[in-house]
């Protein structure tokens, strides 16, 4: 009897779970969708009561993000309106009585973010995979202490080490430089990379390498030709995590950069205008900032899930 009953009940349970999962997923998405919508909302739609879902899309937010504007007086405005050399950005600003007086710094900051996040990610994953392999396969003296030390570096609140590093960087001329930030983010992500990758490498059977060593491979060859391809899912997952952390990092950037090497996260709050908060600009900035991360994650989605379910796949 139970054999007959079970399939139906199981299917009902599965359907319930699926419906619940979709509901939760939508709930999680509300703030993100709201951000997406706000980025394209004109000013009056953002502060409308009750919150508005339909609106005429506008690029006001993006213009606000990438330009600096000044308010026009009535006379200036009339003169300004007669000019024929206005581009679409000027037109949008003009609708709100503003003139674009120059580009904002946000584009450079975004570029700094790209350079610093990608360089530091490559470095920390490369160094991390070597260290993880050594910890996983070789007898390391006081291995637990070293691993605890590595993990403990990640526990430090950024501001704790920033105080001495600020002084150190000022002495060495690394304050507000790309190299300084790349080094710092590499160190910041190294502990995560080592720990994550050690877990992945531990799960690769040693027998593969041992067989290769017997076949005359050197240890280095065994590492590059056997272990690295096997660990690729783990490496991909680690890369995504490091990339996200470096890309989003705020505290170090706030305290150790000012102009040249400043990244996007500490710049977005300063987009806050003087005449009230420019929500559409903040949303537009956040959106541009979020897109690369989402693309990377979706591209690596299968690797990521496989990397995370590594234990299951080995079975």
């Amino acid at each position: 009897m139970p054999m007959v009953e079970n399939p139906g009940r199981a299917r009902a349970a599965r359907t319930t779970r699926a419906v619940l999962a979709v509901a939760v997923c939508l709930l999680f998405l509300v703030p993100v969708i709201w951000m997406l919508m706000t980025a394209f909302k004109p000013r009056d739609a953002i502060i409308s009561v009750p919150p508005r879902v339909t609106f005429t899309p506008s690029l006001e937010g993006f213009v606000g993000l990438f330009t600096q504007r000044s308010t026009l007086t009535k006379m200036q405005m009339e003169r300004y309106q007669q000019r024929t050399d206005l581009n679409w950005m000027d037109e949008i600003a003009l609708e709100r009585g503003l003139a674009i007086i120059g580009p904002s710094k946000y584009r450079d900051r975004l570029l700094n973010s790209v350079i610093i996040a990608s360089a530091s990610t490559v470095l920390s994953v490369a160094l991390g995979v070597l260290a993880a392999y050594a910890f996983s396969r070789f007898r390391v003296k006081a291995t637990n202490d070293w691993q605890f030390f590595i993990l403990s570096t990640r526990m430090l609140p950024p501001v704790v080490i920033t105080i001495p590093i600020f002084l150190m960087y000022r002495q060495l001329g690394l304050y507000d430089t790309h190299i300084g930030m790349i080094l710092l983010y590499t160190v910041f992500n190294l502990s995560l990379a080592v720990w994550l990758l050690k877990g992945f490498i531990d799960e690769i059977p040693r027998e593969y390498e041992e067989a290769a060593l017997v076949d005359g491979y050197s240890r280095w060859q065994a590492f590059t030709k056997i272990v690295l391809p096997q660990a690729i899912t783990g490496i991909a997952a680690t890369t995504v995590f490091c990339l996200i952390f470096a890309w989003n990092e705020y505290a170090f950037a706030l305290m150790l950069t000012s102009e040249r090497a400043r990244t996007a996260p500490p710049s977005i709050p300063t987009v806050l205008g003087t005449a009230g908060i420019e929500w559409s600009a903040i949303a537009a900035g956040s959106l541009l900032f979020l897109i690369p991360v989402v693309i990377v994650t979706f591209a690596l989605r299968n690797y990521l899930l496989r990397g995370i379910t590594f234990g299951a796949l080995r079975r």
Binding site: N248, P265, I268, P269, L290
Partner: peptide, 16 residues
């Protein structure tokens, strides 16, 4: 997706 976002940006946006 939420965990990929920058906390500072999330904070600012949740203010809205």
């Amino acid at each position: 997706v939420p965990m990929m976002l920058s906390p500072i940006v999330v904070g600012l946006f949740w203010k809205l």
